[in-house]
Simulated assay, not measured.
Amino acid sequence: MSEFITIGEPLVVLASENQDISLEAAERFSKFLAGAELNVAIGMSRLGHKGIYISKVGDDSFGNFIIESVKKAEIETTYLTKDKNYSTGFYLKQKVSDGDPTVDYYRKNSAAANLSSSELETIDLSEIKIAHLSGIFPALSKTSLKTFQTFNQKLNEANILTIFDPNLRPVLWDNQEKMIRTINDLAKRSQIILPGINEGEILTGSSEPEKIADFYLKQSPLTKTVVVKLGAEGAFAKLKSGESFTLSGFKVTKVIDTVGAGDGFAVGLESALLEGKTLKEAVKRACAVGALAVQSSGDSEGYPTKEELEAFYKEK
């Protein structure tokens, strides 16, 4: 039975094979599966945790590719449906030797953006232990925001551990003020919050990890833990009790692609918590999976199996 669940927009990424060339000039592309929440579901599956992925795709070649890929990843697709009235989102991604790549999204009014609350009525949450939520899906449309809120409420009513990653995508919002207000309001409904240090500064006005953590711990009685992602520096965690700690990141010889690293962090944390690990052990694994993620092209290609994770630990 599935013990993990998430909701989001699956995407196809056409990644340039021409290094350090603009997307306009690039001529060769490779096709990969993408979408932040789906990345997490794939990573969880690789570490042996069965999960449910909720979304909708178009009745098109990209949609068919996504459904088949999700099945191959051994993720439950019962609630991954097709809709002939809308298309599947995709994006183009630059290949770079250093720094973050340029991306061009083609996702407006996608099938996932039109996933309605009524389509969640039959979902069985009886075996679910952890839910991964992201700030991307509710940013897609008014419909997806309402669907997200309905789903979050169902999770809370079922006493399921909810983990929220702000995953800011300013391009999806009308303006920054609305993005900040909505994301922080959504964060109130989860027990664990996973802001990146740069996201935290935008959302709380502070670049200090502890102040970012305090903001979320104080704004909601439901929030018990905040883990601030510090990139290559590791992570800072603070609990409602006041206990806090910082863990250093793992050294990486060469960064190939930073996209998907934050999702990999969530994979490490959530898989460890499902296995009964302590928060410190979970944050350590989160940093490890994030480090592995940046050493591969593609959004989720670098996520490890259990054996690969153990081998990585031994190397370090």
Rank of each mutant, 00 (worst) to 15 (best):
L120V: 13
D83N: 15
R28T: 10
A36N: 04
P195E: 11
K72A: 13
G200S: 03
S244L: 05
A261Q: 03
G63A: 02
L222M: 10
N114I: 10
S248T: 13
R189V: 14
I136D: 01
D124F: 12
S22G: 06
K95G: 03
V96F: 11
Q94T: 05
S220E: 08
N159W: 13
S271M: 09
T77S: 09
S97F: 01
A272Q: 04
N167K: 10
A158V: 06
C287D: 07
P170Q: 09
K238D: 14
K251T: 10
Y216H: 02
I67W: 06
W173D: 02
K229T: 02
K72R: 11
L269M: 14
S118P: 00
S300P: 04
E24F: 14
S45N: 11
L186V: 12
S126K: 15
K93C: 09
S144Y: 08
G290M: 01
N167M: 07
I75R: 00
I52S: 12
L279E: 07
L172E: 06
K154N: 05
V57F: 06
N159C: 15
I52M: 14
L140Y: 01
E9Q: 09
A232W: 03
V12N: 04
F312E: 09
L222H: 08
D104V: 11
L140M: 05
A34Y: 00
M1G: 15
G234R: 10
F32I: 03
E243C: 13
P304N: 08
T88Q: 09
H132Y: 11
A237T: 14
S134R: 00
E24G: 12
G58K: 02
L145S: 08
K93Y: 00
A158N: 15
V255T: 15
K142A: 09
D263T: 05
S144E: 13
V255G: 10
K277Y: 07
T150F: 00
K280Q: 13
R107H: 05
S118K: 04
K50N: 15
G268L: 00
G196A: 08
G264L: 04
D263G: 02
D98K: 07
L247A: 11
A311R: 12
G43I: 01
Q295C: 01
